[in-house]
Design a protein around this nucleic acid. Structure first.
Lengths: 205, 205
DNA sequence: ACTTTTATTAACCATTTGGTTAGATAATAT
DNA sequence: ATATTATCTAACCAAATGGTTAATAAAAGT
């Protein structure tokens, strides 16, 4: 319907439109015609530039995963002390998602529907966040008594859950507690600092 | 394909099959024919018992939400002390989801795709969990200095995130850390007790 | 017994949807 | 200028898909 970027190349317009539609409706719910309309071009162009729906989808999925994951590594791989890393992770990652609030539901949802498919592809194709070092750090700090004993994967899961989940549960949460969009954003803003402190409080001695 | 309950009524068979297919593939991805096959009946029966796809879907969605939410109230409304409530919530709710691991993604996903639609319907149609009392309890305990100061909705979100999210991120997580299904279940089992303790550690003085 | 209602099926229908094609137009090279 | 290649469109096509129908079998009333 509404095309945003006027002077973008056709290919870019398609990708932008496809991103929007796929992310909102998923692979199964997205319609090629709708993507074409959104991009303001003829449907045949989609096939001209990207062979078929599946390939276009894969493009978008990869692009989405690229937006979502690589930044993790920057934090995971840094050699800051644990608490600082946690603070950085929560704050920065919330920012990332706030700019693309539908990405987590899209990526995890599609992954859920077709786990094997992605397993093979993704792992080798781009730098997937590798939390090994981060896990090691937790293990070490726990052993040295810097933090309470905790299983590293559990802590990692805790951190990520509290960061990502609020966006996935957003409609439910807003409807439930009765929050406006602005109030939800305020809630998220508080979270940027408070959730890291929460985590740290849970593990510090 | 494989029908499980032999002596179930046709209507039950349809609901069971529809549940399975809808929850796995979502409204858009589910095919009426596939549901019929799964139930081992003629496709026309679906329309005989449930008018059309949308109504069948709504049936399943409601049924799913019923499985997922009402138990929350039992815990929310109880008058146990906070820490006990948290322990109970995490443990019991993980059990609920473990029996229906795809429900959260299904319910939240569909809700995301069509927020307005559900807003109107659900709120009045069945007892939606009302965390008011629980939030009040947190507020009171914080004010009385029983726990560290924390905004009640933030704490609520933390509890729920860590309980539900692991199931939604399961494929990603397993692929990522390299866990077998058995190992993931073990991970979840640990979580039943450890996550409540984690939360409590974060808020206790 | 037989009439009526309920349950079930196979075949069919209309629309949607992903995808193709033949041809036009614009850009680029020679 | 002319040939060649890349970009784009309208019309079309075949398969998939939600939904219907007419006929039949089974159950329930009478």
């Amino acid at each position: 319907m509404v095309k945003l970027k006027k002077d973008a190349t056709t290919e870019e317009k398609i990708l932008a439109a496809a991103q929007k539609i796929f992310v909102k409706k998923g692979m199964a719910g997205a319609r090629m015609q709708e993507i074409a309309d959104e991009a303001g071009i003829n449907k045949a162009m989609l096939h001209y530039y990207f062979r078929n729906k599946e390939m276009l989808f894969e493009m978008i999925f990869r692009q989405s995963a690229q937006k979502l994951f690589p930044r993790l590594n920057i934090i995971f791989e840094s050699d800051a002390p644990l608490f600082e890393k946690i603070e950085k992770f929560v704050s920065e990652y919330i920012d990332v998602i706030r700019e693309n609030p539908y990405l987590p539901m899209f990526v995890l949802g599609e992954m859920n529907r077709n786990p094997e498919g992605f397993y093979k592809k993704m792992k080798y194709e781009f730098d997937f966040p590798k939390p090994d070092r981060f896990l090691q750090q937790i293990k070490k700090d726990a052993k040295e008594g810097k933090i309470k004993p905790i299983r590293p994967p559990q802590l990692l899961m805790n951190i990520i859950s509290g960061t990502i989940f609020p966006f996935m549960a957003r409609p439910m949460f807003q409807m439930h507690i009765g929050l406006s969009d602005a109030q939800f954003m305020e809630f998220i803003d508080q979270r940027k600092t408070e959730y890291a402190r929460f985590i740290i409080d849970a593990i510090k001695k």
